[in-house]
Each structure stands twice: as C-alpha cells, then as structure tokens.
Amino acid sequence: MFKISRTDIIDIGVLPAGIVTFLSYSAFGAILTLIPDWSDHLNLSNKGIFFAAYTIASILIRFISGKASDKYGRTKVIMIGLLIVGISLFLIGQGDSFNKLMLGASIYGIGTGILSPAINAWTIDLGKHNQRGRAVATMYISMEAGIGLGALFAGMYYQDIITRIPQVMYFNALFLGIALLYMFFWQGFSYRKKKA
C-alpha cells in the first residue's frame, strides 16, 4: 500500500510541460546563486533589491496575465513568456549598473509572471482528469530539477570569477531559446495530430 513507483508520481502525458518548466527554471537557479555576488560587484548595499523588483513585477503582471492563456491559448502565452524571460536574462547579463540590473529584474518578473500561470494551466490540460495530482507532481519535479541543476552548474562554472556571471546568464537565455523552439515544434505536432 505504501510502495510508490515512478508511474505514481510521473505523468508521461505532461512531459511537454515538464520539459519547458525544466528549461525555463534552470535560469532561476542560476539567479538565486549568482545575483547576490553580482549585486556586491555593483556595490549595492541591499542584495535583495533585485528580488524585490522581480517579485513586484511578477505579482503586478499576474493581474493582467492570469486569464490570458484562457483567452489566447496556453502555448501562445507560454511562448511569449519564454521570449520575455530570455530577453531579461540577456539584460541581466548586461546589467553593469543599478538601473540596468533593475530593468533586467523587472522584465524577468514580467516574463515569469506570464509564464508560470500558463505552464500550470497547460500541465492540468495535458494531465488526465482523474490524475491531476500526478500531473502537478511531474511539473514540480521538473521545476525543482531545473532550479537545482541550474544553481549547481552556475556555481561550478562561476568559481568566484565575476566576469563569468554574464556568460551564465547568456547560456541560460540559450536554454529559453531551446524551450521556445520546442514549443514551436510541439505546437506544430499537436496541430497536425488534430487534423489527422
């Protein structure tokens, strides 16, 4: 009765959402690991100001974006979110001043505020009606794996060499590009499957 197999916590049908979640949240792991040192490098006394700007932007955009995926479709909204997050990572890498870093943080918050609710809704759509817990578990496992591995590899590459932080951000922006390409292919595949 208490034995749990991987089929009890992983829903194969939700893997498209899991892949996008993994690729997009690896950047968050890198940000959590490296932004305090980047803030220090920019002589910011408050290392949490980046996260304050990010959080405020993310909360505010959710008032607008919350129902956008219902109106325009999950995949379209997810692709917009991925594009915005990718741009924000490039801006964070370029953020060699307070204003630039805050701009990057705010745009990152906007991107994640658009992306997160749409991925959550897409996960539920892809999952079986009577197994939504398994669908959500799959998405959260992907998210935690993305954050954890993003943080791990960012720290391993960084090695206290401050000039490597922008490179980590650009690399993570590439991950967002891969996720965006995946969404294009998945959307095309899904469309052809419906027509068949």
Rank of each mutant, 00 (worst) to 15 (best):
49 I>S: 13
147 I>P: 02
173 A>L: 12
121 A>W: 01
111 G>D: 01
72 Y>S: 12
115 L>W: 05
184 F>L: 12
97 S>M: 04
165 I>H: 00
178 I>Y: 03
50 F>A: 04
98 F>Q: 13
137 A>Q: 07
136 V>R: 02
192 R>P: 09
90 F>C: 14
175 F>L: 13
126 L>A: 10
129 H>T: 15
123 T>V: 03
159 Q>H: 10
106 S>F: 04
186 W>I: 02
85 V>I: 04
104 G>Y: 04
60 L>I: 14
80 I>C: 03
182 Y>E: 05
148 G>K: 05
177 G>C: 12
65 S>Y: 02
163 T>V: 13
125 D>C: 08
126 L>S: 09
94 Q>T: 14
187 Q>H: 10
65 S>H: 01
148 G>I: 00
68 A>P: 00
119 I>P: 07
139 M>A: 12
93 G>C: 03
145 A>I: 06
99 N>C: 06
175 F>S: 03
182 Y>R: 08
183 M>I: 05
68 A>S: 07
94 Q>D: 14
180 L>W: 15
173 A>T: 14
113 G>M: 04
99 N>H: 13
194 K>D: 12
56 I>W: 04
92 I>P: 00
98 F>R: 13
107 I>S: 04
157 Y>W: 05
119 I>M: 10
164 R>L: 01
187 Q>P: 06
113 G>H: 02
114 I>R: 04
147 I>G: 01
140 Y>F: 15
49 I>N: 14
180 L>C: 13
92 I>A: 00
125 D>S: 11
98 F>V: 03
124 I>H: 00
175 F>G: 01
191 Y>I: 09
50 F>C: 07
58 S>E: 13
109 G>D: 11
88 S>L: 10
174 L>F: 13
56 I>M: 08
140 Y>Q: 09
182 Y>K: 07
133 G>W: 07
188 G>S: 12
174 L>I: 15
88 S>Y: 06
59 I>T: 03
50 F>H: 10
196 A>R: 14
57 A>W: 07
183 M>D: 05
167 Q>N: 14
67 K>T: 15
142 S>Q: 00
